[in-house]
Design a protein around this nucleic acid. Sequence first.
DNA 1: TCATTAACCGTCG
DNA 2: CGACGGTTAATGA
Length: 246
Amino acid sequence: MLLATLESCELLRGLTSQELASVAEAARVYAFPAQSDIFAEGQPCDGLWILGAGRVRLYHSAPDGRQQVVSFRAPPAVLELVPALDGDRFTATATTFEESTLVFLPRIALVPLARLHPVTAGNVIRQLCLELRQRDISAAVTGMKHARGRITCAILQLARQYGVPVGHVGFRIAYRLTRQDIADRSGVTLETAIRVLSDLQRQGVIRTQSQIIEIVDMQGLRHPTDCDVCQFDCSVFAPSLPPPPR
DNA sequence: TCATTAACCGTCG
DNA sequence: CGACGGTTAATGA
């Protein structure tokens, strides 16, 4: 489990199996039950959590009890690379959806990686850029005024992250999410999420069955007052760059 | 537990 | 005023 997780980890891409084995000596495997916290926002970070199996959501907790989801994650994934690198506090809470397995790499072992294995430096930069872009989209979503824009943008981002092609133009978001999850990701209430999603279904833009969303009509998700003004290129609509398969 | 609908109400353009 | 979205309640799967 430990080695398999490290092998699939983007940060360690390019390392020989010997080098991976030396990294593994410093790492440890932890199992988490469903709906349990891996770490909490504000807590000091002393290493990197790598998701090997299961699913995790990263979110901020608002004082009113609501959650603002920053990202839904699935393997292979590293959680919160920034605090892992600078040793400061976690910027979000990580909670498992289901029983999950994670590898913990202490900062002591993480920091020297770029010097010991120069190939990881590029990996780190790529990963940081990815995280930054995701936060950018999150910020864009929360800045949007209308619920429909927030939700469609969140769906598009999910489609880029977890979309698998279905038919000629469709995509299935291969990540089970309740309406509440969609609401927490979009910054709206559960009922509003249901209203918008029901509307989109009625219009034949999406289909949902047992917490899996399928996008039938990509263009139908575009909204004149949202997508056209949006300064962020979510790249979902770029024909030359189809969503990468996971 | 999750999803859905409807009625009601406040806010804002 | 009217659209939008949050609140609350009731109901079904």
